[in-house]
Design a protein around this nucleic acid. Structure first.
Length: 997
RNA sequence: GCCCGGAUGGCGGAAUGGUAGACGCUGCGGACUUAAAAUCCGUUCCUCGCAAGAGGGUGAGGGUUCGAGUCCCUCUCCGGGCACCA
C-alpha cells in the first residue's frame, strides 16, 4: 500500500439514517485522505477528469453533478481495480459572469468568486465525490495564472515549422534567417521550400529578400508574421454596449451578444491572435489518436472544415482597369480564387470579391467609384443579423473592372458582393452560375451570363423541366430536347445543377474536359493550371486564427509590454506573474456608439501598474486580458503537480500522469484516461486545449500528443417548467394540478391542468436551471434522501449520454433499494443481521446470481452503463431478501459492487462486518465463469418464429434430443398438430425453431 | 438547406438478429396496523375470452431472414451541431 490508513469505525445508527452516516464517512475520508493520488506509485495510473465548472452564484442543481457522479463511480471502481487514480477538481473562475455580478453588487469579483467556489466545494463534498481535494485550485489563483501567462509566452516565442510540421523556438527561425537558409517573400512571409507548393496566391518568382538586408522594424514584422501569438488588425465582433470584442461563439445567430443580447458590429481592431491555423492539419489528422465519440470527432472535422480544390489566378485585364493601374505605375494584379470545382472553370462568367478585399479600391473604375464606396460602407455597417435576414436576396455592385478567364481568355466582369466572405479562401471567387446556387441567384438578379459546363442526369433535367412554366418550352418535352436546351440555355431552368456529371462546353486549344467525369475533369484542369503557372491544387480550411484578447478586467493579464515606437516586448519568465491590479472601478465602459474606441478597464489601472521602465524606456502594459478559454486550456496539466513553484508541472509528474504505462484500460496514446463533460464543449474548449497541448508537446514540455485520450459526453437533465399568462416563469415547486396535487407528482400524466397561486399556468419543458425556475438542488435531495440515493438515482435515470427528464418522485425507488440493503445487513437493534452466516455460501442460486451480478456490474461500469448496473444490483438484492440466509462472503462481495455507487452506505455496512479498513481500499471481486450457468440451460421453443414454450435441457444436448423435448411440450405439440415440419433451426443452448407449413 | 443523434406501456427505461417491455416510478387490489406512515405480497402493453388460451403490438410504409425493436431502403416527427465556407 502507498499509505497509512486510519481504522474506520461504523456509526451507532440503528436505522438507515443517510444524513448522519454520510457526514460521518465524509469526515473519515477527509481525515484519512483516502482519495489522495500518489505521485509515482508503483500501481498503474488512471486519470479521471471532469470538465471543471464555472462557480456561478446560483450554486448547483441536480443536473450539474451528473457527470461528476459518473466519473466518481468510475474512479472508485478503478481504485478497487488496483489503479492509482488521479481524480481532481478545480474551478474555471475568470470570466464575464463574475465580473457582471460584481458590477451589479459592487463587490470585487475576487470576493464573489471566492464565495461561489466555497459554496460549490461544500455542495460537491456533500455528494461524497472522491476528489483529491489537496489538488484543487481556481484559474484565478495567481499561482495558476502565472503559468497561463507562461504558456502564452511559449506561444509568443514560437513559430510553426511547416517542414517539420511542428512548433519550434523563434530563435531557431532567426538563426536560419541569419544564415541565409530562408528568404522572405511577399507580405513578410518567409518562403519555406516545403510550403511553396501550397502557399496561397501567386508564386513568388523573385526568390525573396535576404533577412540581413532588412531594417529592425522589418525584422520584427517578419517574426511577428510567424509567431504563434501575434497582434493583428482583424475584423472582429465588436459589442459597444459591453465594451468588448466577442468571439464568434459568443455571438448569437441573430448577430447579438450571447450575454445581454446587445447588437454586435464588424469592425477592424488590433487584437491578439493565436495562430491555430498552422496546426489545422494536425488537429484534424490526430483525431485518429483519441477514443472519442464519433459525433464529436465529426463536429471537430466540420469546424475545421477541410475542402479540397484548386487555386486559380485570373489576370486583371482589359480597360479601363489596367489603364488606371498603369497610370499609377502599377503592374496589373492577378486575382486568386479558391474553388472546389476547378472542373467548372470554363463556366466562370464573372468574378466576385468580398467588399473588404484589399484590391477593391484599386480595381474600381472612376465612374464606379462612388457606387463601390457606398456598397462597402453599407456592408460594413450591416450587422450579422441583417446579412442573415437578407441571405435569400443577393446584393452587390459592379466595379467596372474586368478579369481574364485563364482557360478561354474571355473578359469577365468583376463585382463585389457581401455573399463572398473575406475570411474564407482568398476573399474572391470565380462565379460559375450554372453550377452554384449562390452564383446562380446572383446571376439571375443582375442578368449575368449563365453557361452550362456539366451535363446533369436525365432525372434532374426532367424534374427541373416539370417545374418550369409551359411557355419555356421544355415542360413535358422529350428528354433529347430538354438536354439540348440545357446545353444552350441553362438559365431557363429554375435551379443550378450542383452535382457531378460529364463536362461539356469545356475545351480550349490545349486542354479539353469534354466528356470527362467530374473527378477526372478536376484532375485534368488542375494539372493544366499548374503546368501553365495559372494555379495549383489546394486544400482550404474553414478554421480561422483564434482571437485571443478581451477588453475586460476579470481575466489573465497579458505578459506583454508596448514600447513607444510600437515595439512589443515580452515580459521575462522570471518576472511572472503579471498580477491583475487591484481596482476600484473595473467595469467595462460600454457605449451606444459603434465607432467609439475600446476602453479596456485596465486602461484605468494605477499608473504604477500600467507603466514599466526597461533600459530607460517607458513601456505600457498590454491592457487587454485573455479570454475565459485560456484557463481551461491546460488545467488538466496543473492537476498533475498543482503546487509546483518552478514549473507549470514537474516533468516527471506530467509524464507519470499524462503518459503512464500501457496498463489495460488506460488511454492508448496517453492523455487523460477518461474525460467527461457536456457536448457543448465539443468544438471550442476541446479544440483550443488540443492546440495548446500540441504546442507544449512540440516544445518538449508535455509527453503525450493529445490531452484527452478517452472522452465521454453526458446528456443534460431537463425538467418541466411553468409559465403564466404573461409568459413569466413561475417556481415549478409551487405549481399544483386541478386536484391540488403538487405538479412534480403528476408532471407527466395526461389531462392535467396546472395552477400557480390559483392562476392557470402552462407546462413547458426545458433544460433545468435558474432561469426557468425549475431547478432542484442536490442539497434538498441529500437532506431528504441522502447523497447515496441521489447519486444512484441520477445514474439510474437512463443512459449517461442521453438527455433525461428529472422526476423527483422516481428517487423513491432507489431510496427503497438502499433501505432494503440496510435491512438485509442490519437488524432492528443495529447489530449484524442474523441472516448473514459465517459459513460458505450454500445457496447455489445466490452463488450463480452473485457471479452474474459481479460480471454485469463490472462490465457496465467499464462502458459507463450505470443504469443497467444498478438494475442488476436491484435484482440481486431482491433475491437476497427472499433467501433464508446468505454468507458473509456474499455480503462482502455485494458491498464492493455497491461501493462506487453508494459509497457511504457501503463503508458503513463494511465497517459493521468487522472490516478494519475502508472499502475504498478493498479489491474488486472476480467472477467465476464456471458459476454463471448450471448444468442445464433453458431453450426456447418456437413454431414459425413464435414462442410456444421452453424447457431446461442438458448443456451439451444435440438437436434431436432438444427437438424431442419440444415435441413433448403440450403447447408446441398443439401447434404442430396436422402440420408438416419443413425445417428445424437449432441455436445450441438458446432456441429451437420449428418451421411448419 | 447540410451533417449527426433519436422515436419501445400512463412515465423513466431494458433487450450479442432468438420469449419485447428487465429494473424502477405511478395506478389498482391485498396483508400488517385502532389508524396512518413505513414494510411486505399480488397486479398493471392492447383486443377478444368466465377461463385455459388466441390474436395484435417497438413512429409510418416496404425489404432481407426460419426469426427484425435490432440489418437495408423510403418517409414523418423530435433533439443537437453547422449554415452565403465558393
Amino acid at each position: 500500500m502507498d499509505r497509512q490508513t486510519i481504522v474506520p469505525m461504523a456509526t451507532d445508527c440503528k436505522d438507515y439514517e443517510p444524513v448522519r452516516i454520510e457526514s460521518h464517512w465524509q469526515d473519515y475520508w477527509k481525515k484519512d485522505k483516502t482519495f489522495r493520488a500518489v505521485d509515482f506509485s508503483e500501481r498503474p495510473k488512471f486519470y479521471v477528469l471532469d470538465m471543471f465548472p464555472y462557480p456561478s452564484g446560483a450554486g448547483l442543481h441536480v443536473g450539474h453533478p451528473l457527470g461528476y457522479i459518473a466519473t466518481d463511480i468510475f474512479a472508485r471502481y478503478k481504485r478497487m481495480r488496483g489503479f492509482n487514480v488521479l481524480h481532481p477538481m478545480g474551478f474555471d473562475a475568470f470570466g464575464l459572469p463574475a465580473e457582471q455580478f460584481a458590477v451589479e453588487h459592487g463587490v470585487h469579483p475576487r470576493v464573489t468568486t471566492g464565495k461561489n467556489v466555497a459554496n460549490m466545494v461544500r455542495q460537491l463534498k456533500r455528494l461524497g465525490l472522491s476528489y483529491d481535494w489537496d489538488r484543487a485550485f481556481a484559474t484565478t489563483d495567481v499561482d495558476y495564472y502565472r503559468w497561463t501567462q507562461w504558456i502564452f509566452l511559449q506561444l509568443y516565442h514560437s513559430w510553426f515549422d511547416p517542414g517539420r510540421n511542428r512548433a519550434r523556438p523563434i530563435d531557431d527561425l532567426v538563426e536560419m534567417l541569419e544564415s541565409g537558409k530562408l528568404r522572405i517573400g511577399r507580405d513578410r512571409r518567409i518562403l519555406f521550400p516545403s510550403r511553396d507548393e501550397t502557399e496561397d496566391g501567386k508564386p513568388d518568382s523573385s526568390g525573396g529578400r535576404d533577412w540581413n538586408g532588412l531594417s529592425e522594424t522589418e525584422k520584427r514584422e517578419v517574426l511577428a508574421a510567424h509567431r504563434l501569438a501575434y497582434l493583428a488588425d482583424v475584423h472582429v465582433n465588436w459589442c459597444p454596449a459591453l465594451g468588448t470584442v466577442l468571439a464568434n461563439e459568443e455571438v448569437t445567430n441573430e448577430g447579438r451578444s450571447e450575454r445581454g443580447n446587445y447588437p454586435v458590429y464588424q469592425r477592424p481592431l488590433k487584437q491578439w491572435m493565436l495562430r491555430i491555423t498552422d496546426y489545422v492539419k494536425r488537429l484534424e489528422d490526430e483525431l485518429d489518436l483519441v477514443d472519442w465519440p464519433e459525433p464529436i470527432k465529426l463536429m471537430q472535422h466540420n469546424w475545421i472544415g477541410r475542402s479540397e480544390g484548386a487555386v486559380a489566378h485570373f489576370p486583371v485585364g482589359g480597360e479601363p482597369a489596367t489603364d488606371a493601374a498603369a497610370a499609377r505605375g502599377e503592374s496589373a494584379p492577378a486575382l486568386s480564387v479558391f474553388t472546389t470545382r476547378p472542373d467548372t472553370l470554363f463556366g466562370a462568367t464573372y468574378m466576385v470579391l468580398a467588399p473588404e478585399h484589399p484590391l477593391v479600391d484599386q480595381l474600381a473604375t472612376p465612374d464606379r467609384h462612388d457606387a463601390v464606396a457606398e456598397y462597402k460602407r453599407q456592408a460594413a455597417r450591416r450587422t450579422e443579423l441583417e446579412r442573415q435576414a437578407d441571405a435569400k436576396t443577393k446584393s452587390g455592385v459592379f466595379t467596372g473592372a474586368f478579369a481574364v478567364n485563364p482557360v478561354n481568355n474571355e473578359r469577365i466582369p468583376i463585382w463585389i458582393a457581401d455573399y463572398v466572405l473575406m475570411a474564407y479562401g482568398t476573399g474572391a471567387i470565380m462565379a460559375v452560375p450554372a453550377h452554384d446556387e449562390r452564383d446562380f441567384e446572383f446571376a439571375k438578379q443582375f442578368q449575368l451570363p449563365i453557361r452550362a459546363v456539366v451535363m446533369p442526369g436525365d432525372d434532374w433535367l426532367k424534374e427541373q423541366a416539370d417545374k418550369t412554366a409551359a411557355d419555356a418550352g421544355i415542360n413535358g418535352a422529350p428528354i433529347d430536347e430538354i438536354r439540348r436546351r440545357y446545353i444552350r440555355h441553362p438559365d431557363v431552368f429554375p435551379e443550378a445543377f450542383v452535382g457531378q456529371g460529364l463536362s461539356i462546353n469545356s475545351s480550349n486549344d490545349e486542354v479539353s474536359l469534354d466528356n470527362l467525369a467530374t473527378p477526372d475533369a478536376k484532375r485534368t484542369i488542375s494539372r493544366w493550371l499548374k503546368d501553365k503557372g495559372l494555379g495549383r491544387t489546394h486544400v482550404q480550411y474553414k478554421l480561422r486564427d483564434w482571437l485571443f484578447s478581451r477588453q475586460r478586467y476579470w481575466g489573465e493579464p497579458f505578459p506583454i509590454l508596448h514600447g513607444p515606437d510600437g515595439e512589443i516586448l515580452a515580459v521575462e519568465e522570471d518576472e511572472l506573474p503579471v498580477e491583475l491590479p487591484e481596482m476600484e472601478d473595473f467595469r467595462p465602459h460600454g457605449s451606444d456608439d459603434p465607432d467609439a474606441p475600446p476602453r479596456p478597464p485596465l486602461g484605468r489601472a494605477p499608473e504604477s501598474w500600467r507603466f514599466v521602465e526597461r533600459n530607460g524606456v517607458r513601456y505600457q502594459r498590454e491592457l487587454n486580458t485573455m479570454p475565459q478559454w485560456a484557463g481551461s486550456c491546460w488545467y488538466y496539466l496543473r492537476f498533475c503537480d498543482p503546487d509546483n513553484r518552478e514549473r507549470f508541472a514537474g516533468p516527471e509528474a506530467e509524464r507519470y500522469w499524462m503518459l503512464g504505462g500501457k496498463a489495460k484500460g488506460q488511454a492508448e496514446n496517453g492523455g487523460v484516461d477518461l474525460y467527461v463533460g457536456g457536448a457543448e464543449h465539443a468544438v471550442l474548449h476541446l479544440l483550443y486545449a488540443r492546440f495548446w497541448h500540441k504546442v507544449l508537446h512540440d516544445l518538449g514540455h508535455v509527453s503525450s500528443p493529445e490531452p484527452f485520450g478517452r472522452l465521454f459526453n453526458q446528456g443534460y437533465i431537463q425538467a418541466f417548467y411553468y409559465e403564466d399568462e404573461r409568459g413569466m416563469r413561475v417556481p415549478a415547486d409551487k405549481v399544483v394540478d386541478q386536484d391540488g396535487k403538487p405538479a412534480e407528482q403528476v408532471q407527466d400524466e395526461p389531462d392535467r391542468r396546472f395552477f400557480f397561486e390559483g392562476k392557470p399556468v402552462t407546462q413547458r419543458y426545458g433544460k433545468m436551471g435558474k432561469s426557468l425556475k425549475n431547478a432542484v438542488t442536490p442539497d434538498d435531495m441529500c437532506e431528504e434522501y441522502g447523497a447515496d440515493a441521489l447519486r444512484a438515482y441520477l445514474m439510474f435515470l437512463g443512459p449517461l449520454e442521453a438527455m433525461k427528464t428529472w422526476n423527483t418522485q422516481g428517487i423513491e425507488g432507489i431510496s427503497r433499494f438502499l433501505k432494503r440493503i440496510w435491512r438485509e445487513y442490519v437488524d432492528r437493534d443495529g447489530n449484524r443481521h442474523p441472516k448473514i452466516a459465517d459459513t460458505a455460501e450454500s445457496n447455489p442460486d445466490t452463488l450463480r446470481l452473485l457471479h452474474e451480478t459481479i460480471k454485469k456490474v463490472g462490465e457496465d461500469i467499464e462502458e459507463l452503463r450505470f443504469n443497467t448496473a444498478i438494475s442488476q444490483m436491484m435484482i440481486f438484492v431482491n433475491h437476497l431478501q427472499k433467501a433464508e440466509s446468505f454468507s458473509i462472503e456474499t455480503a462482502r462481495s455485494f458491498l464492493k459492487l455497491l461501493a462506487p455507487f453508494a459509497p457511504h452506505l457501503a463503508e458503513e455496512l463494511w465497517a459493521r462486518l468487522d472490516d478494519r479498513s475502508s472499502i475504498s481500499a478493498a479489491s474488486w471481486p472476480e467472477y467465476d465463469p464456471a458459476r454463471l450457468e448450471g448444468a442445464k440451460v433453458k431453450v426456447v421453443f418456437q413454431v414459425n418464429g413464435k414462442y410456444r414454450g421452453d424447457a431446461l435441457v442438458d448443456k451439451g444436448a444435440d438437436q434431436d434430443t432438444v427437438l424431442a423435448a419440444a415435441k413433448d411440450h403440450s403447447k408446441v405439440a398443439a401447434h404442430l398438430e396436422g402440420k408438416t415440419v419443413r425445417k428445424v433451426i437449432y441455436v445450441p443452448g438458446r432456441i429451437l425453431n420449428i418451421v411448419v407449413s
